[in-house]
């Protein structure tokens, strides 16, 4: 007869994920676009070296929040950001912060692949060049190769590094943009629907890549695909009408969420 001891039972019931240290923290983040308020006091911790997915219906503020994390909203004149956002405990909206340096630490990949109209090589070498991270040709060669390798693209393009990046397929272009983002050794990578313009195979490759990248980088991804959020992330945050509704371990969010709005959204009952 198989008698389970209390200790053995307790052991099997241990939580699957241990809490990670937080890399970025949003405190009471509010955003106004002119008169219109887009975020209403969001408090959210982004754990280090994990993938956090932001989900919610269109216009819920998830992309707005993502863009706050590397001050991309600075480029919009009417946008005002309140509250504070910390990167390793340091407020990134502090006037002493160099925004260019910040965006090297917190890189971004967009919805549509947007390679520069330059060669594949130059697309990747551009960041290290303007940030002064490499000087000699051999150094550039190395950073280009390793970045393309990390992005899972090197073998496909190694014989045509000097052909235009815009000549690649959509999926390859997106991986080129990821290679460009990681060439400057960022700590955090923000992704705004990186797979929405890609076919299932290219999507699978990017998702596989995201999973590998989280060994070294903290990743925040905005996605409209529930399945994608469930597949790639360790934690999920649900936004609705400019508020953070619920945040938690991904497997709980997709099997047994606490909030009714999350429940309705992920099961396809509104939105």
């Amino acid at each position: 007869m198989n008698m389970l001891t209390d200790a053995a039972v307790e052991e099997t019931l241990q939580p699957l994920y241990k809490p990670a240290a937080s890399k970025m923290t949003g405190k009471d983040v509010t955003v106004h676009y002119g008169e219109k308020q887009a975020l209403f006091g969001v408090n959210l911790e982004v754990p280090e070296k994990q993938v956090m997915a932001l989900i919610g219906p269109s216009g819920c503020g998830k992309s707005t929040f993502l863009r706050c994390l590397n001050r991309m909203n600075d480029t919009i004149d009417i946008c005002r950001v309140g509250g504070s956002i910390l990167l390793d405990g340091e407020d990134i909206y502090d006037p002493r912060i160099d925004v260019v340096e910040l965006r090297a630490r917190v890189g971004m990949v967009f919805q549509k692949p947007n390679p520069f109209p330059k060669s594949i090589y130059e697309n990747v070498a551009y960041g290290p060049r303007i940030h002064g991270l490499a000087w000699k040709k051999s150094e550039f060669d190395e950073v280009v190769e390793t970045s393309l390798q990390k992005a899972g693209l090197f073998n496909e393009v190694k014989d045509r590094l000097h052909e235009p990046g815009t000549g690649l397929s959509g999926g390859q272009q997106q991986r080129l943009c990821i290679a460009r983002a990681i060439a400057v050794s960022p700590e955090v990578i923000l992704m705004d629907e990186p797979c929405s313009a890609l076919d299932p195979i290219a999507t699978a490759k990017v998702e596989e890549l995201i999973d590998e990248l989280r060994q070294n980088y903290t990743i925040v991804i905005v996605t409209h695909s529930m399945q994608q959020a469930a597949r790639v992330s360790q934690r999920t945050a649900m936004f609705h009408l400019g508020n953070l509704v619920e945040e938690g371990p991904t497997e709980k969010m997709f099997t047994n969420p606490d909030d009714k709005r999350t429940q309705d959204y992920i099961t396809g009952r509104f939105g």
Binding site: M226, A230, F254, T255, P257, T262, Q263, I266
Partner: peptide, 10 residues
């Protein structure tokens, strides 16, 4: 067909 989530999946 539907990739059910949460209580639908359960």
């Amino acid at each position: 067909k539907r990739q059910p989530m949460a209580q639908d999946l359960r």
